[in-house]
Computed example of a mutant assay.
Amino acid sequence: MEGSQCYTVLVTGANRGIGLELVKQWLRKPNPPKMVLATCRDPEGTRGQELRNMASKHSNLKILQLEATDPASVEAAAKKAEVHLGGCGLNFLINNAGIMPACSLESATSKDMLDVYNTNVVGPMLVTKAFLPLLKKAANASQQKGMCCVKAAIINMSTVLGSIEKTPETYHFMPVVSYRCSKAALNMLTKCQSMGYKDDGILCTAVHPGWVKTDLGSDQADLTVEESVNGIMKVLCNLCEKQHGVLITWEGKVLPW
């Protein structure tokens, strides 16, 4: 469904890296969404400046304060989003916010594990629950049959590092134990969501963006942010029922859980 219009989009962690580039590329589409909702922890801070600059030029971009680990913040953002959407539902929810601190088997502490799990797993769970009524509204309003990208979709930004089957190939390259464990849990959350929301017509997919030159990645990474998001956008705009409940790469290839 390349080129199909997505009417409303929400991206978490949208003030930098992949999240910021996703917002830029949604806005640059020849048929941009009716509304792009960009969320971050501190919209008024220094890191929110680029988003604020874009919002001054694009009336269809709204910035929301959202701390994904804080239920009150998430609920407040959902209420503001409903107002901005003006009666429309939410077609795309992209759970992009995440952290990846250095963490080995030797250095890991209970706090390390819980902090990362809270951001990378509990956060997407809370955000999805809060925005679920808007996703259901979009799905119910759609005339499309089955699940597809222009109806309603939940996208969880995951990684090949969360693939248990691929661990022997990737572990020594990047141990980051707390991050790996959290993304494996996010993959399970995605699979559970794909089962739980199937009857609502909401497509649920986990996406591996590749090894990207971001704050979470490395200067030695394979991909620029633009290259990764170019691929992600092609994947998102062509999502259909066969990608429901799978882990898919930025190039559209299915990875094993």
Results as ranks from 00 to 15, higher is better:
residue 28 R to C: 12
residue 14 A to Y: 03
residue 71 P to T: 12
residue 27 L to S: 14
residue 243 Q to P: 03
residue 231 G to M: 07
residue 66 L to W: 01
residue 221 A to G: 14
residue 119 T to G: 04
residue 92 F to R: 04
residue 250 W to G: 00
residue 169 E to L: 15
residue 224 T to Y: 10
residue 246 V to G: 01
residue 232 I to E: 01
residue 99 I to N: 04
residue 186 L to I: 02
residue 144 Q to P: 00
residue 244 H to W: 04
residue 88 C to L: 14
residue 227 E to R: 08
residue 120 N to L: 04
residue 256 P to Q: 05
residue 50 E to D: 15
residue 86 G to R: 09
residue 113 M to V: 12
residue 208 H to V: 01
residue 136 K to C: 11
residue 218 S to K: 11
residue 134 L to T: 02
residue 177 V to W: 01
residue 152 A to L: 10
residue 196 G to H: 12
residue 114 L to I: 12
residue 214 T to V: 09
residue 16 R to D: 03
residue 233 M to C: 15
residue 123 G to H: 00
residue 122 V to Q: 05
residue 71 P to R: 14
residue 11 V to R: 03
residue 178 S to I: 04
residue 111 K to D: 14
residue 62 K to F: 04
residue 248 I to D: 01
residue 204 C to H: 03
residue 159 T to N: 07
residue 178 S to V: 13
residue 97 A to Q: 05
residue 78 A to P: 01
residue 2 E to R: 13
residue 220 Q to A: 11
residue 70 D to E: 11
residue 49 Q to V: 13
residue 185 A to H: 03
residue 64 L to C: 08
residue 114 L to T: 10
residue 51 L to K: 06
residue 111 K to T: 15
residue 5 Q to K: 15
residue 84 H to K: 05
residue 38 A to T: 08
residue 103 C to P: 02
residue 144 Q to A: 14
residue 228 S to F: 05
residue 230 N to K: 15
residue 4 S to R: 14
residue 83 V to C: 02
residue 217 G to R: 02
residue 238 N to R: 10
residue 141 A to Y: 02
residue 49 Q to C: 09
residue 33 P to I: 09
residue 199 D to C: 09
